[in-house]
Design a protein around this nucleic acid. Structure first.
Lengths: 146, 146
DNA sequence: TCCTTATTGAGAATCATTTGCAACAAGCTT
DNA sequence: AAGCTTGTTGCAAATGATTCTCAATAAGGA
C-alpha cells in the first residue's frame, strides 16, 4: 500500500470513518493527477466507475483534513487543489492575462511567517501566497492585447 | 472632492465610462466601511437608495481595476474586499475555528516577492498572503472545543 | 453471517454571482 | 438648454459551483 493510502486509511480510522470503494478511487485519481485539479476533473475521471459528483465534493474536505491535499488557488470561480505529498508549499504566480500559473519555492518566506506567527501566538496550519500580475510573455505583448 | 473620488472619476473618464449616481453611492459606501466588506454588506447600505445588487456586483470589479479596493479574502463562500487607500497590503491570518481575521504588515515579505518576480520576469499587480490556522484564543480552548 | 452505523448516488436545493433587456441617464455636441 | 449617442441601471431570470436530502447500500466490528 502506498504512503498516501495508509495515511488516508489511518486518518479515516481515527475519525471512525470508513474506507470505501469511492474514497479509494478518488484518492487514486488525486494522486494520478499532475498539477492542479478541481472537483470536475476528478469526476470526469471517475464517473465511469460510478462515483458521484456529490461524493467527490464530500471527499475533498476529508483529503484536506488528512493533510493529503491543499487548496491551491481559486480560478474562474472554482477551487483548484494540489496534493501535498512531495509538493512543498510554494508561491503561485497567476497571469491575469493568459491565466498561466507559475510556481516558485517559499524560500525564507516560510520562516518569516512562522516568526510572525510566534509573535501573534498563531498556530499555522496552511500558508497561501498568491501573486497576481502579468507573466513575461504577456508583458511583451501588452500593447497588442489591449 | 475626496482623493478616492477623483481617482475613480479619472479612472472612469480614461475608460470612457460614466460617473453615475449608483457608482458614486457605492464608492461612498465602500469608504464608509471599516475593515472587510462583501457585496451584500454594500447592498444592505444602499438598497434604500435604490441601488441594485447587480450594480453593486458590476461596480466592484471597476473599483478593483481603479486600484481603490482589493480582494482581501474569500470566506464562507463569499468574496470579501477591503479598500487600498491608506491600507497597505498585509498578511491575513484566519482562525479556522472562530473565523477571526488578524492582520500584520508585509514587512520584508514584499521585497522578497519582488526580487523573485524580477527573476521570473513577472509583473506584480497584487500580492495575496493568507495564513490559515488557530488564533491564540482557540489554541487555549483547543481541547474543550473538540 | 449479523448488525450497527457510515456512505453512496441521484436529483433537488442553495446561494453567490452574471446576464439579458427595455427603460433611463451621462455627458458631449450644437 | 435641448438633442443625441452610448453607457448604465434595475429587475428578474439564468448560471454554475457546491451542498443537501433521502432511501438504498456497504463497511467493518461482533
Amino acid at each position: 500500500m502506498k504512503d498516501f493510502e495508509s495515511k488516508f486509511k489511518g486518518f479515516l480510522a481515527e475519525k471512525k470513518l470508513k474506507l470505501t470503494r469511492s474514497r479509494s478511487l478518488i484518492l487514486e485519481a488525486v494522486f494520478a493527477m499532475q498539477g492542479h485539479f478541481d472537483a470536475e476533473m476528478l469526476y470526469d475521471r471517475l464517473k465511469d466507475e460510478s462515483v458521484s459528483m456529490a461524493t467527490v465534493y464530500r471527499t475533498l474536505p476529508l483529503l484536506m483534513e488528512a493533510g493529503l491535499i491543499r487548496l491551491a488557488i481559486r480560478m474562474e470561480g472554482r477551487d483548484r487543489f494540489e496534493r501535498t505529498f512531495g509538493h512543498p508549499q510554494h508561491v503561485h504566480w497567476i497571469c491575469e492575462n493568459c491565466q498561466a500559473v507559475l510556481e516558485s519555492g517559499l524560500g525564507s518566506l516560510k520562516s518569516m511567517l512562522h516568526k510572525e506567527a510566534k509573535a501573534l501566538k498563531f498556530g499555522i496550519d496552511q500558508i497561501n501566497i498568491t501573486v497576481g500580475g502579468l507573466c513575461w510573455k504577456c508583458r511583451i505583448n501588452e500593447n497588442d492585447s489591449q
